[in-house]
Each structure stands twice: as structure tokens, then as C-alpha cells.
Design a protein around this nucleic acid. Structure first.
Lengths: 247, 247
DNA sequence: CGAGCACTTGATCGCTTTCAATAGCTGTGG
DNA sequence: CCACAGCTATTGAAAGCGATCAAGTGCTCG
């Protein structure tokens, strides 16, 4: 366990996801109860955190890093069904076994709770249950947004949709205005993007090249992306570019 | 307002969705509080119940009939993102405006609550909040299941998936064993199926004809379907046929 | 320096879409 | 009563998009 992780073993007040995770609405006393049963775990990039079908012994929040939720068919076809970012919750209270594979795509730190004690705490702490409901409703909205992308958008629109979502998330974190060029690193490989979008990695590569050729995006290396005009990108995504930010 | 609707204006105890809707965990006293603020509304087949973007004045449960949740792009492409069956909940506490179109595909009856009173009641009634969380988690699972269908399955597999889901739901309602042929009516037009599956209606029609030709299903008229062998259908859907019932 | 990995690019194939014609059904009105 | 409009569904032919198969590049690491 490294220094960065050790430094997280302090009061929840200093936690980077304090105001957005499942504990967001907790008062100081509730926070102490959570603090008493929490523990940190780290996973390395590429490591599987949970296997679909396995018994779930714990639940928890992503503190830093990125993980993915994926489903796989017997013949190997896989579809990503969720992207877990810092503050996102992993695990389903009230269900024993996991429904999806959870895989770390970067090194990640999680704030974990054994499932049983967490469920007991949740049962007597409406603030936690309420926040979990909010977060689940947000995830449901995101999943439905992706159903439109998967079912009805072209390959080019799919890529543009993914890029615009990542760009807007980064902007909301860094508090940069929406005007002016945006720069960020892709947190996913071409294959992971393909699994997210229901495409092959070759098609992902081709469409990224096409968007670059058309000046919708710029690339430095394979991962660093510049968006000169977010409105243009959102047009390419088939979205309404004039406002309409749901988040 | 017709007699069938009037007959629903009685105590919740007799309600057909009493044990599955958002009120499932309520004790008699909580039920009385709900009873005091509830009211019924009916909608005719084809009628839009809620327009995306509109202010939501109420929330409620589907008592009988079927409705759909759809998203539409500016150029008219539409994707269904949810199928609302009896006991399903409509509306999102904590959000003012609707994110999707809700359309009745059959005549339907809804048990409604004005949004504000319902939210206040929910805030002091953990049983309701808890049940809503359960239901939302189930919907999230269903949405993620559909993401695999939309992203990775072929047209034939998509149709087989939809039929097997409808077949199993009907079986769970009628308590028929899984052995022996199953018969049911399709509750959706070819176009609605296409919108659900991310296909065109022509492709839906072709794949249904193909499954019929191959003996996977039988048809009487356009809507009545017989499944001689559910295991066979689930193989065609690309699902594991040996057990694995999540619901 | 070579192995391994992520990615790009090219050529071809095939599934689904698109465009189009037709059938069956229901309800309406001359 | 029949003609016709309107709707749902089926079927055919052709086109196009993304998948598949294949080769090659650039990078890192041992």
C-alpha cells in the first residue's frame, strides 16, 4: 500500500468525493458511523474487481481512477454497460451476486464497506438511502441516453457522442467555461470505446481519424484530444447544440 | 369515466398491483395516507401521457395496460428506452421536467399522485423510498440488459430476445410452468418493436417471418404467438438457456 | 533488437437499411 | 353495397454502412 492510499485513511471530511458519493447527504454523526466501518482497497489497471455471478461481499465508492461495467455473451461479444468514475457506487444492496464484470481500466482506489454492515446502516440512515436513490436514478438516465446512442446513432455519431460526454464531464470537473478549446486525455482504449459503443475497434479508429481529418477534433499522440468547438462536436453527435445540459 | 375505472376507486387492499407497485412495502396506516391523495386517470391507446421536456405535475403507477418511454432525435429517429407494465412507476421524484415521451400503447389506467404531496410523503415514509429504490435498481438492470441487446446482438437475436422476455413475463403472470408451448399476444406493433430493438420495421417483419419459417415460433394472425420450445427461442436469442432466470 | 501491444489503414463481404410495391383489414361515405 | 382511404404488415431489389480479414506502423519494455 502506497503513500497516496495511506493518506486517504483519514476523516471523511477531507475525502475528494465527500460531496458527491453515496455519503453526500450524511451529517457528521452519520459520517462517523461510515468512517468506522469503511476500508480502502486499491486495484491495478486491468485488474478485475468483481466477476459477474460471484458473491458480492462488499459495496463501495470509486475514490479515484476509472472502472468499467461489462456484460459478455458466451461467444465473447462484450458490451460495456457502465463507466464508473470517482464518486460512483459499486454493488447493489439487496442482491447477493454481481450481475456484471467490474474491471479497473486505470489504477483505482475504492472506499469499501462490507455489504451486511452497510445494509444495516442504510436501513436506519435515510440520508444514505436517499442519496443512493438519487444516484441510481441518474445512472438510469445515463443508461437510457446510451440506449439511444446504441440503437439509433451512426458510428460517427457514436464517437462524437462519447467524446462530447467525456469533454463535458472534464469541463464540469475543472470548472472551465464551455467557450474556448477543451483538452483532455481519453481514459479508454480503442477497444474499450468499441465495447461502449457497440462497434469494432477498427471502426472506432476509422471514425476518430475521420473526425480528425474533418477538423472536428485534434489529436496529440493517440490519447490526447483537443475539441476546438464543442458545438460542432455536438452537432456531429446528433445532439441539440443549443444548451440543453441535463447535468 | 367508465365503470371499470370507478370500480378501482376503492381501498388499496383490493388493488391488482398492491404487492408489486411503489406501495408494496407500505403498512396499513401508510396505505391510508397514499389512499387519501391518490386519484385515477385513464388514457386511450395511442395517447401521449407525458411529453419530453414538459413540467411533470404528477407521478404514478400503471395499474393496467401498457405504455412506452421513448426518446426522439431532431430528425425523427426514435428509440424506446422503457416498456411500462402494470405496477411500473412513472415520473422521477426530485426532477421537474420529463426526460422522455410516455405514450399509451393500449388503453391504460394509472394511479396518480400530485408530485409535491407524494414527495413529502416519501420523505417521511422509508417504506416507499425503499421500494422505489428497489424498483429503480431493477429498471437499471433491465436497461443494461437492453444495452447488450442493442449493441451486440444481430437482428434475429434481437427479435428472439424480445419474444423470450415477453413470453417469460407472461408465464410469470399466469403461473404456467415453463414446460409446454406458451401462447401470448404481442402487445406492440412492428414499428414499436423496431423502436425497442434499434431496427427498422421491415427488418422486424422479415426476422419474425424467418423465425416462423424455421419453426422457432408459430403465428395466428399478426399478433398471436406460440412458442413451442422456450429453450430453442433462448438459444436463438444468444442467451444461456439452462436456467439463469434473474427475475 | 525483437516481442508484444495499441493503433491505423486497406480491401472485401454481408447484414441491415432504404426504396418500393403489394396485400389484408377496418371504417367511412357516396 | 361498393369504392376508397388509411393503417399495419409483408416481401422484393438494390444500396450502403460497419464488420471482417489482413497487413503494417509506432511505441514500450525486457
Amino acid at each position: 500500500m502506497n503513500a497516496a492510499v495511506m493518506s486517504l485513511h483519514n476523516k471523511c471530511d477531507d475525502c475528494p468525493i465527500r460531496h458527491r458519493a453515496v455519503c453526500a447527504h450524511c451529517d457528521p454523526q452519520e459520517l462517523e458511523e461510515l468512517d468506522a466501518i469503511k476500508y480502502y482497497r486499491t486495484f491495478e489497471a486491468g485488474q478485475t474487481i468483481i466477476w459477474s455471478g460471484d458473491k458480492m461481499g462488499f459495496v463501495g465508492s470509486v475514490v479515484s481512477g476509472i472502472a468499467t461495467l461489462t456484460q459478455t455473451m458466451e461467444d465473447g461479444r462484450t458490451q460495456m454497460v457502465g463507466l464508473l468514475l470517482p464518486s460512483d457506487f459499486v454493488g447493489r444492496p439487496g442482491r447477493d451476486s454481481a450481475a456484471y464484470n467490474v474491471v479497473a481500466t486505470t489504477n483505482i482506489v475504492m472506499c469499501c464497506f462490507r455489504k451486511k454492515p452497510f445494509e444495516e446502516l442504510m436501513a436506519r440512515t435515510p440520508h444514505i438511502a436517499h442519496r443512493l436513490l438519487e444516484m441510481t436514478l441518474d445512472e438510469l438516465d445515463a443508461a437510457r441516453e446510451w440506449m439511444l446512442v446504441l440503437g439509433r446513432k451512426t458510428a460517427r455519431e457514436k464517437i462524437a457522442s462519447l467524446l462530447s460526454i467525456i469533454a463535458r464531464r472534464d469541463a464540469s470537473l475543472s470548472q472551465t467555461g464551455v467557450t474556448g478549446p477543451m483538452v483532455f486525455d481519453l481514459p479508454l482504449t480503442r477497444e474499450a470505446m468499441a465495447d461502449y459503443l457497440g462497434l469494432t475497434l477498427e471502426t472506432v479508429s476509422r471514425q476518430i481519424s475521420a473526425l480528425k481529418k474533418d477538423g472536428v477534433i485534434h489529436l496529440e499522440g493517440k490519447r490526447r484530444v483537443t475539441i476546438p468547438d464543442l458545438g460542432r462536436l455536438m452537432e456531429e453527435a446528433g445532439d441539440d447544440s443549443d444548451g440543453g445540459f441535463l447535468v
